[in-house]
Design a protein around this nucleic acid. Sequence first.
DNA 1: GGTCCGTACTGGTACGGTCCAGCTGGCGAG
DNA 2: CTCGCCAGCTGGACCGTACCAGTACGGACC
Lengths: 259, 259
Amino acid sequence: MQPPPQGAGVVAGPVPKHAQLRAILVRTITTDLAPDAPIPSERELVEAYCVSRMTVREAIGQLVNEGLLYRVHGKGTFVAPAAVQSQLHLASFSADMRRRGHEPSSRVLAADLRTPPPAVARALALPPGAPAVHVERLRLADGVPMAHEVTYYPDHLVPGLLEHDLSGSTYELLAVRYGLAPTAGEQTLTAESATRPLAALLGTATGAPLLLFARTTRAGDAVVEHTTSRYRADRYSVRMSLDRTTDGVPAPPEPRSST
Amino acid sequence: MQPPPQGAGVVAGPVPKHAQLRAILVRTITTDLAPDAPIPSERELVEAYCVSRMTVREAIGQLVNEGLLYRVHGKGTFVAPAAVQSQLHLASFSADMRRRGHEPSSRVLAADLRTPPPAVARALALPPGAPAVHVERLRLADGVPMAHEVTYYPDHLVPGLLEHDLSGSTYELLAVRYGLAPTAGEQTLTAESATRPLAALLGTATGAPLLLFARTTRAGDAVVEHTTSRYRADRYSVRMSLDRTTDGVPAPPEPRSST
DNA sequence: GGTCCGTACTGGTACGGTCCAGCTGGCGAG
DNA sequence: CTCGCCAGCTGGACCGTACCAGTACGGACC
């Protein structure tokens, strides 16, 4: 028994409906709507896409707590001003990109066992010369190169990692398959100019400025990875607050300008 | 229905049930359970507290995306060892350099009244076209150029600032002379290539990578300054730890705008 | 005119149910 | 003994419904 989903772009399938709806909303938000513009009401979305209200609320809920939307009880749901955006990221690349309203994807450039550079070996607490799992990826946002990433894992912590699909979120993989949910990390951040091969990979000019992250991630006492990422500075910036945490979407209505 | 929820601390009332359950879970998690220990299954919680599964999922969902819990499909929900967060401090150039073991100094390149760029005016909450105190400085560490800094102050907040010696710590000046001790700030960080004049000033090659900071500083509610700094990436890097949050005990009697 | 209140929206909370998908462990077949 | 399968757990994804609580607006009443 299947009532035909007539006008809806949302269908049952391997992709959850709320994810489909979410994608639709992101597209609408980022292309058609101005900040503080209302999106259709939950009940309208229910009708328009032939889904339940719960599904709608799930999709909207995700976007709300990623900071793309904000809800006002009794009034509606609105596009959050772009001002508030990123946080610091120990979040995975995937989560970070989604938070910024981009669709993350990855291209695995290499995945093998390799001896890490001495500095990395030291960070991972491995004896010099010992091999480690080495993964090199090109990270894309909306299909456009965003960053280049080289990660090393101590191989005894992640047996069989190379057999998994590494084009998704590795943090998720670590947490789910190996019980290694990142608990702490440390990173240093500086800038660098793109070398010719890197520029080619990232689609920038040679010498273009890159943000260079060197991060060590821990799960409990164990160091689970060391990552070196190079982000295109023209596409990426880090935002940090220098005191109080928490984002701050619910901007109190300043009635100085017309709504 | 069953009004007497014998073993349950969850009752109808002004505080939503999911918030009550959430508070209960937080307490359990932080006092009774070890990291990676499983919490009761959703269906068990449904029974134990006489609420619907949706309520349970709402409560757990909040804690999951605050990083206190993580779910594993088919296994259960577990106490997260920690979460991700980070904070940097607000430090003056002088303090920052001294902490790094360098001797800070400054060369004032300009100090006048000037109309800030629109973006800066907006950050300072000034009407477009209004003048602001403008200070441009070359910052040195151990006598060697480290950064170039352009700062704007709303002139009504810092009358007479231009008559002071600006080659020292301005944060100190602000605090001592004007009672404007910085309490909070926000900055975005990206990278840039050095233009020819900037390169000459900083003593680097043209096109050398620079770390570009755009910082807004507040003292209480007032925005006291906006600074754009360009640091030589070969001499400067930012280190940040991505530590645990463990914000512990939220859920005051009043359900604030949290999620 | 101004106040008051009902109505018709909005999101918020909460209930019930159903089926799917991933994991685990035990038990029987080989 | 090992292997494979399946029952029985888990969370995941949905559906439908109901009522509450803010918000806006217009029309009835002073």
